[in-house]
Design a protein around this nucleic acid. Sequence first.
RNA 1: GGUCGGGUGGCCGAGCGGUCAGGCAGAGGUCUGCAAAACCUUGUACAGCGGUUCGAAUCCGCUUUCGACCUCCA
Length: 499
Amino acid sequence: MNRDLFIYDSYQRQHVRLEPIHDDAIGMYVCGPTVYSDVHLGNCRTFVSFDVIYRYLLALGYKVRYVRNITDVGHLEGDADEGEDKVSKKARIEKLEPMEVVQRYMNGFHHMMNVFNTLPPSIEPRATGHIVEQIEMVKKILANGFAYERNGSVYFNTQKLIQEREEYGKLSGKIMDDLINESRTLKNQDEKDHPADFAIWIKADERHLMHWPSPWSEGFPGWHLECSAMSTKYLGETFDIHGGGYDLKFPHHENEIAQNIGCFHHTPAKYWLHANMLLLNGKKMSKSDGNTISPGQLFTGESKFITKSYSPMVIRFFMLQTHYRSTLDLTDDALQAAEKGFKRLIEATKAVSNLSTNESALNTDLNKEIDQIIDSIYSEMNDDFNSPKALAAVFDLVTRINSFKDGHTNVNQLSKDTLSRLQSEIKIWVHEIFGLKNEDATTSGEGSKLNGVMQLLIDLRAQARAKKDFSTSDKIRDGLASVKIQLKDSKEGTSWSNE
RNA sequence: GGUCGGGUGGCCGAGCGGUCAGGCAGAGGUCUGCAAAACCUUGUACAGCGGUUCGAAUCCGCUUUCGACCUCCA
């Protein structure tokens, strides 16, 4: 197994070789969603990106513990620490229990992750289930002198961290002097010693529906604290990979690093990975100016930004055609192109199973070429999970498979070993690593019935064609076309596919 | 205003010092009863202006433009 994997670490700002802390096991923490509304399509891209990373690490034979949290308390509205808790607010407005809000949107999130065929994480901890751990962490940070209490709330002392460790701001590229000086004029009315300080425990006012007892007040944990507490609990004080969206770099990840240093005197993760944003027609998605589209709208086609509906796997394929660290521009044209490309990929993945060789025309050069292409898929992916390049190599195989299938290239040039490697590797890549599944219904019970019906029609049409009864054969083909089933004639007979 | 990251052919997107990205669309061809599918061949590119280099899409500087985060303003 080729584990010569290089990744781009946002913290060091360079490509580095992935060297896990423990030889065969990797701990990976990815910041999950705050469940106070429907999943955003941009979130889906982030989680699909990390899903492919997770799947690839598994394919390399690593034992991966993938922890992705659910934020169900503590994420406040607005920038400041005095905003209202997002979940709490939604619950108040809709007159629901906070946990009803959480459950509803968490279910929706899980459903969408399933629709996009992402693997569930190994552990999916919730912030509200780890209040005790968070309180313990606040105690430690206080004991270490990196936090102070004001009227029942506890704040992290960023200035002390800057002075003693020259650390705060490193991940996000903030300049410490700016953090010290520029923000000094703002919001002096609150109880923090310094505007850059942030709350790790917040005293609940009467509006807050969710609160817990603590040594400082009846309150709730700050948003950033949950990730520090839960990653430590499940992955240890130091683990391999910490991931999340680019927009979480500051303040969320920066504050997380601060908390871990304040508590354990070192940063939590060896490597930081950040997935880039999804744009719509060249602009960021924003609900306020209407430049937004939901996964549901994509699947139904009900949006002014698209001309038709697109299936989840087409969207997933579309996402994989771009590197996870690049912004991705969603447009109708691009989706249409992705749809056709995806279809060709899936058709070839199915067709490869039917190939067989008798080795009567062995061609060592060709066998070597196929082997090299397969190896290159791995080496492309080893370059910071370069899925677009890996896909390009897979398409090289697609062309060759189709050529064998049509008889343009003699399949008997292949050795049995090469063919079986080709057959298994393309399925590993398409289905297991890229997580793309065949969306045809042919594998289900109804599907196999349909297969029988289709075979009958194909046979009848073949008979008609043999008798040069083209009006009958065309009637069958056109009739099927009108229900979106396409017939494809080839030397080896007729096959069919949806759309 | 600050920090960081981008501007690649008709569209989306890799590449980041010298060699083919890839997908989709376009053109020509093969196969086919006709189609479709598939295969083969093929054109058009690196925001602009300077500089470094034997050689730059790739490095440096400036200009312009876009995005993210922060800030400001509301």
